[in-house]
Write a protein that binds this DNA or RNA. Sequence first.
DNA 1: TAATCCATGTAATAGGTTACATGATTCC
DNA 2: GGAATCATGTAACCTATTACATGGATTA
Lengths: 188, 188
Amino acid sequence: MDIKMLCLGALSLGDATGYDIKKLFDEAFSHFFAAGYGSIYPALEKLTEEGKVAYDRHQQEKRPDKKVFSITAAGREVFIAELTQTPPREKLRSEFLVLMFFAHLLSPPRLAEILQERLDESQRELAMLEDLTKREMPAGMKFTVHYALAATHAAIVCIKEHQQDLLRDARVIVNQCARPKSPGEQHA
Amino acid sequence: MDIKMLCLGALSLGDATGYDIKKLFDEAFSHFFAAGYGSIYPALEKLTEEGKVAYDRHQQEKRPDKKVFSITAAGREVFIAELTQTPPREKLRSEFLVLMFFAHLLSPPRLAEILQERLDESQRELAMLEDLTKREMPAGMKFTVHYALAATHAAIVCIKEHQQDLLRDARVIVNQCARPKSPGEQHA
DNA sequence: TAATCCATGTAATAGGTTACATGATTCC
DNA sequence: GGAATCATGTAACCTATTACATGGATTA
């Protein structure tokens, strides 16, 4: 399951330009898959070569020409076959948790900043997801929003719960390091 | 923040072989960063060239030689500098949610299978994380476990809540498609 | 006796990110 | 007047995955 397949999926919902597909990645897909123009346009080119999509050139008066892509019958078949054999994996890559794992190496103000930034970001995501719940969509799509909402909410609660304790601990550790060592404590 | 930095982080906790570091990735890091031997060994090689780590060769009688890596003073500095300037991002890549997003293209049995597999996998993760909570560790590390626990738990609850509804909807849609179309409904 | 643990690595490839390059239009 | 929207793409680079290759020791 790569960006090519997600583009095919996007086109299974209706015809679109590369630009449109990017918007889909930024909105509907954003909480579970990321892509930029640098991957989307080459992906569409390869799919075209493979006969899985085709495009019509739409001339516009006051805009550059558009390439409006559609999925072909072959493309739809390949996409459904792919869905049928893709295992339902999930992989998180969290720089935030790396920072927290090594929190004992951070200064207390930096730690406070990290927690606050993540909290703010999570709250922005929450707002975006709550906005999405208002749109009409099939049950499966709706589920992805609920799922992301639940995870984001849980994250926010967890950060708020531990924030004070983590910062208190950080200050204590800094104080211990600042205090001159008594003899025999070097190899503690 | 790449695998090189995570290796440096691992060595900031104590000397280790490439093999040991892999175990750390599979246990303590597993819920927020992934890596295999194919990335760890080259990373350690580059870090050695850059003077951020060094190794001692330990001969063993009944085993192949070990390379025991240690972080250098320079390496520790670089690592802390990196921690200080890394933004606390978080990125999910979920094939599971892609499948759910396109659930309307799946057969009901396949959909049921996907939900069950994800549930089982989440429950395995939950068990692993609960096991980790029993170990003694600094507050920051403990937090990463609580955070992952909260997210995984929320995911499980969410799947259980929607499982029945999703499957019911899927059956309805299949029935609609199976039913012969009445005239004039082709372009609905 | 089969699987798992210990222990190291390479090579080919896939895959994606980032920055660059262009340019009119419309909204604030 | 400046930012955002619409619209397309390329090229260099970096990173990581996968499969391969080896092999003794221990545990079930």
